[in-house]
Amino acid sequence: MRSYAGIFSTTAFAKLLKLGDLSFLQSRIAKYDSRALEKGQFESYLDYIKFAYNQLGKNYRNEYFFKNSIINEAIIKHYSLKNTVAFSEFKVGKSVADLTLFNGYSKTFEIKTKMDSPKRLKGQLTDYKKLFNFNYIVTDSSQTEKYLKEDEHSGVIALHYTKGKIYLTEDRPATENHNFDAEIAMKCLRTKEYQSVVKAYYGYLPQMTSFNMYDVCLGLFKDIPPRRLNELFIEAIKSRKFNIEILTKFELELRQVALAMNLNQKKYQNIIDQLNNPIKL
């Protein structure tokens, strides 16, 4: 199962995109699934990816499977696709949020699979509360009770897998968070983005040099009312333009790969064209 989980590595897909390297699939088929290939359970590399993903769902629901399920069952189904941007692995303070989305508000999803420990959760949630409007813990339905005992302000979403069907339930809604740390927010932004926040609020950019730019803008950030700063921060993040509408055009098993790699239609099609080739060992 760990070998199947490794198929969905962004490093492997980057090599496929750049070099046409299918060895990460060929080696697994040769080692584990040559008999299944002979029996006709799959023919193309894309067929094999779908086969491996199905096995993960049945037996080894890892972080990738959770992220992909959140994209498919929550984000795509329940949000305005044209106005929502989402990110995989979003750094906040000392933590990295598994999945985040920005619409009219910000929301984070921290994944805890059966294989994960809640050991680092308290610190992660402390960091997320400095930035996000709503924070969720997403876990397997068998683990829900354990995580309902964690921070009462964080929501809990359970992933259910029944007879090959996946669905999510919100077992506890998140309480809206009104904290907003100006310094944490600014560290999440690129130079042009935090400059745009300053200009949007004050109407101008003050005179500054490349040496004092960060400190000058940080001082101005701290003087913006938190609620307004939160709004401007979300607008700046959404300017990155990767809306999730494009993901609906991609194979559902590969949407998290596409999100993590920020794939456009052309690059994604390049990958799919190669995966559609018949398997050759």
Rank of each mutant, 00 (worst) to 15 (best):
G6Y: 14
I7P: 00
F8M: 11
F8S: 03
S9W: 12
S9P: 00
T10A: 05
T11K: 13
A12G: 02
F13N: 04
K18T: 13
D21H: 12
L22I: 07
S23T: 10
S23I: 08
R28K: 15
K31E: 15
S34I: 12
A36W: 02
L37C: 05
G40N: 06
F42I: 01
E43G: 01
E43L: 08
S44V: 02
S44K: 04
L46V: 07
L46Y: 14
K50R: 13
F51T: 00
A52M: 04
G57S: 11
R61W: 03
E63H: 08
Y64C: 09
F66P: 03
K67E: 06
N68K: 11
N68L: 12
I70Y: 13
E73N: 14
S80N: 15
S80I: 11
K82H: 05
T84H: 05
V85R: 10
A86K: 05
K91E: 04
V92Y: 01
V92Q: 02
V92K: 01
G93W: 09
F102M: 04
F102C: 02
N103C: 10
N103G: 05
N103Y: 09
K107P: 00
K107M: 07
I111C: 00
K112Y: 14
T113S: 05
K114H: 09
S117D: 13
P118W: 08
R120S: 00
K122G: 00
G123T: 08
G123A: 01
Q124C: 00
Q124T: 02
L125D: 05
T126D: 14
D127R: 01
Y128W: 06
N133K: 10
F134Q: 08
Y136Q: 05
S141P: 02
S142F: 06
T144C: 06
T144I: 12
E145H: 03
K146I: 10
Y147L: 05
K149A: 04
E150P: 04
H153G: 14
I157L: 10
A158S: 15
H160K: 15
H160A: 12
Y161K: 08
T162S: 15
T162N: 13
T162Y: 15
Y167K: 11
Y167Q: 12
E170R: 11
E176C: 04
E176I: 01
N177Y: 06
H178E: 14
F180R: 04
A182K: 03
A185V: 02
M186Q: 13
Y194R: 07
V197M: 08
V198E: 05
L205D: 01
L205P: 01
M208G: 06
T209E: 08
T209G: 12
Y214E: 12
V216K: 13
G219E: 13
L220T: 11
L220W: 07
F221Y: 09
F221K: 04
D223A: 10
D223L: 15
E231Q: 14
L232T: 03
E235Q: 15
A236R: 04
A236K: 05
I237A: 03
K238V: 00
N243F: 03
I246F: 11
T248R: 11
T248C: 09
T248L: 10
E251C: 02
E253H: 10
L254A: 02
Q256K: 10
N262A: 01
Q269R: 10
N270Y: 13
Q274I: 15
N277S: 05
K280C: 12
K280H: 03
